[in-house]
Design a protein around this nucleic acid. Structure first.
Length: 482
RNA sequence: GGCCCGUUGGUCAAGCGGUUAAGACACCGGCCUCUCACGCCGGUAACACCAGUUCGAUUCUGGUACGGGUCACCA
């Protein structure tokens, strides 16, 4: 058991899955699975104030949708449970007591008001270690009197604590620069700082994978392991995910940069696999290959620590879109239709051929969320801009297009059936007869019928989707408008 | 502000002492085409700066600048 690599993902239930968090989960999972290890999900809900109903389900659902399956955790159980910290509340106290006995922690009776004023005075400074060396009798007196207390870690006043991070190498921090951080809160719950150390030990976690905001606080955790006499785990701190603001400034990825939760992205029409694939490459790059499209199994095979970058990565929605469009294009028709058709059903008139329209859209959309705007012209006659008739490539002008429309209207009216092949043949023949470029004819018709410059299909394809009556009506209207 | 980390094109990134400094997204151009898209072909664009080590630095060391993180009874 101890030989096998064990990682965990330990989010706090906030109600949504931040994309940076998801990447941490993914890397943690991949590290374990790349070496046939175990992966644990642990819910860190020691903050009772921030409790969010149903938040754990969001986490579990996200992992399920992305294919990050855990070997132990809520819902699946395991021999190291429970996997929700609030359900493990009883076990932290005795470890804290142990630390007090061994001189690595102490009771602190300072009120939160005092702490607050301390903070206000110093700005940045922290606790003044007021209770660090309280006389034993005073401690007992306070305890007996029921004075609320927290338990703080007794950080050595001198010396340096260092560890070797798997990504960043040696990190050394002066003990004097560390705070006597709180291990147990007044409400009896442990802090993250304490709980995760105890749990990682109890759950036999061998590699702690997390964001690099913990890089400099890790020595404090190392001191805890040392105090208990436990073997320290290996640390894998990941470069942060950044966002680029409209002002061009780069900062930690947050709401102001757009959709940052997995659920937001899914709602916008991104596929879970596309999201996973993209974020896998944000801070990691495979060795010996230039591959970009990865299935989860391939990631498990290729993933390795030495491919992880040290520098922060800016989340690029454009590239995510590209991945998503690739995944959409690769979708089998039935799967694609099951996503696209409902959207079209909802926004299109009954006479519109949704299956045809969906087909036209298949290779042209980057997200399912953009379907409504792409097909708006089908159900609505958009305001016409006659400039659209001008095509330098096809050498058309509004006037030349009008002539084409006038000529073609009766031909189309006479069409004995209304499908793409028939319509195309009619127009092609017309172009040949008039010695026009086919493109010039198609351009005129397409603009007239779509009233839009960029369309999800060619002239005759659009006419087929719009139907005979609407198409002809639009051509007549267009003639009048020029 | 103290401490810590980082710095290759607009973005993701390969590189790990000697290279014409990969590739992808985006962008631009071309081809194909019934438009757009797809697809194919091509192009623009980068080693933050200054010292040092070395025969030789994008690669190693130091400093500067810039960016980020952290200093909670949040995780």
């Amino acid at each position: 058991m101890s030989d096998i690599i064990t990682t965990r993902f330990a989010p706090s239930p906030t109600g949504y899955m931040h994309i940076g968090n998801l990447r941490t989960a993914l890397y943690s999972y991949l590290l374990a699975k790349s070496q046939n290890g175990r992966f644990i999900l642990r819910i860190e809900d020691t903050d009772q104030v921030r409790f969010v109903e149903g938040a754990t389900d969001v986490i579990i659902d996200t992992l399920k949708m992305t294919g990050i399956d855990y070997d132990e955790g809520p819902g699946v159980g395991g021999e190291n449970g429970p996997y929700v910290q609030s359900e493990r509340k009883d076990i932290y106290g005795k470890y804290a007591e142990q630390l007090i006995k061994s001189g690595h922690a102490y009771y602190c009776f300072c009120s939160s008001e005092r702490l607050q004023s301390l903070h206000d005075e110093n700005g940045l400074g922290g606790y003044d270690r007021h209770c660090r060396d309280l006389p034993q009798e005073e401690i007992e007196k306070n305890l007996a009197a029921g004075v609320p207390y927290v338990i703080r870690q007794k950080i050595p006043l001198e010396g340096t604590t260092s560890y070797v991070d798997e990504i960043y190498g040696e990190v050394a921090i002066e003990n004097a620069d560390m705070q006597d951080q709180i291990l147990m809160k007044a409400d009896g719950y442990p802090t993250y700082n304490f709980a995760h150390v105890v749990d990682d030990y109890l759950m036999h976690v061998t590699h702690v994978v997390r964001g690099n905001e913990y890089l400099t606080s890790t020595p404090k955790y190392c001191l805890l392991y040392d105090a208990f006499g436990w073997e320290r785990p290996k640390y894998v701190h990941l470069p942060l995910l950044m966002g680029k603001g409209e002002d061009g400034k780069i900062s930690k990825l947050s709401k102001r940069h757009g959709a940052v939760s997995f659920q937001d992205l899914v709602n916008e029409g991104y596929l879970p696999q596309a999201i996973t694939n993209y974020i896998a490459l944000l801070g990691w790059c495979p060795k010996e290959t230039n591959q970009e499209m990865f299935t989860m199994d391939e990631l498990k095979r290729e993933f390795s620590l030495d491919g992880i970058s040290k520098s922060p990565a800016v989340f690029d929605y454009e590239k995510l879109k590209w991945f998503n469009s690739e995944y959409i294009k690769a979708l089998p028709d039935d799967e694609y239709n099951s996503r696209a058709l409902p959207v079209l059903e909802e926004i299109c008139a009954p006479e519109v051929d949704k299956v045809k329209l969906a087909g036209l859209l298949h290779s042209r959309i980057a997200t399912f969320g953009e379907i409504p705007e792409r097909v708006e012209f089908v159900t609505k006659r958009l305001p016409m801009d006659t400039e659209l008739y001008v095509s330098k490539k096809n050498k058309t002008t509004a006037e030349s297009c009008k002539a084409v429309l006038v000529d073609c209207l009766p031909l189309l009216e006479a069409a004995d059936s209304w499908d793409n092949d028939t319509l195309f043949a009619i127009l092609k023949d017309y172009a040949a007869e008039k010695e026009l470029k086919a493109g010039a004819v198609m351009w005129a018709i397409r603009i007239a019928v779509a009233r839009l410059g960029i369309t999800p299909g060619g002239a005759t394809e659009l006419m087929e989707v719009l139907g005979r009556e609407e198409s002809l009506a639009r051509i007549r209207l267009a003639i009048d408008e020029i």
